[in-house]
Design a protein around this nucleic acid. Structure first.
Ligand SMILES: [Zn+2]
Ligand SMILES: [Zn+2]
Ligand SMILES: [Zn+2]
Ligand SMILES: [Zn+2]
Lengths: 157, 157
DNA sequence: ACAAATCTGTTATAATGTTACAATCCCGTT
DNA sequence: AACGGGATTGTAACATTATAACAGATTTGT
């Protein structure tokens, strides 16, 4: 599988995606506490994005349903450590599709099925970064998102 | 002034920006009703982004303070007709800096002073669009945002 | 003047995200 | 094993952003 294939929109063995992510999480020596683990599990179910409250509503451990801060803390942790990404256009979250090699990611978002494909690509348009650098701007993070309709949804699935 | 200069971070005659925008708005045969006009005026004060409620709080006409839908309707209208842009990273809005020639814009966002510079640039990273096209994705809109600290704010202004 | 379309007023509510502080758990040291 | 500091969780309240629904007013074209 090539590095910049939009896996999420292709037939693939998704259990591999899970495996890689979980292995990666463990290898980093992170403390994957119960809520973090559970949130990561939810996100890793597939390549759809989930809102914080969608996650929150599905979170549960021994009959205990946590409050909003619990979901946001876990999400912040996962995002901070590169195991998940925030999709600004959707105010939602996806599992990182390449936690082992995620430098700079862009996202292809289907507004029908909510699938989000992650693509490793150079940060932003070269023009934008060049222009920023030209005026001494210190760039810290970039958002690259393309929204539209995926091929499946165009064909009415 | 070159086309892809981040005007917002440069010394410039901002009254020109206003003029151009207002002229452009009128030329398009749009119905710039009072709220739309007032919201546009607020956005055109400078190149800072404003949240919908910041706008709402400052909106007022003959002593009448409108409700949220009024602000959102005006903003939706302005965005739809290219007179303003939504900044996804901030859930906020800026006046379009080049309403006369705005094809595809990226944004350079200072998290200190909230100034947002608009840069006319090719939509998204070429890689991202190519990859999307490769899988038959129908791209409708793209988000390109770079967040960081502007040169002014780095120097403690 | 009339009807249709657009815009506005108004109330209520939904969806998303944060603050603050106390209680608990984990981990390295004594 | 006891201790102490840092990280994590529990909990309640609250802040911010955005939309739904529907009635009334204004504008536009005929
Ligand atoms: Zn997968
Ligand atoms: Zn789709
Ligand atoms: Zn200006
Ligand atoms: Zn600044």
């Amino acid at each position: 599988m090539e590095k910049s294939e939009p896996l999420a929109f292709l037939e693939h063995d998704h259990s591999q995606c899970r495996q890689t992510a979980l292995k990666c999480a463990n290898n980093q020596g992170l403390r994957l506490t119960k809520w973090r683990q559970l949130v990561l599990d939810l996100l890793l179910e597939d390549h759809r994005s989930m809102g914080a409250y969608e996650i929150l509503n599905r979170l549960e451990c021994n009959g205990v349903k946590p409050q909003p801060p619990t979901a946001y803390r876990a999400l912040d942790f996962l995002v901070e450590h590169g195991l998940a990404h925030r999709i600004e256009k959707l105010n939602a979250y996806v599992a990182c599709a390449r936690p082992d090699a995620c430098q700079s990611a862009g996202f292809i978002i289907c507004k029908e099925c909510n699938i989000v494909a992650e693509v490793e690509c150079s940060p932003s348009s070269p023009e934008l970064l060049r222009v920023a650098a030209n005026v001494g701007f210190d760039a810290e993070s970039t958002v690259m998102e393309v929204e539209g309709i995926c091929s499946n949804c165009q064909n009415g699935n």
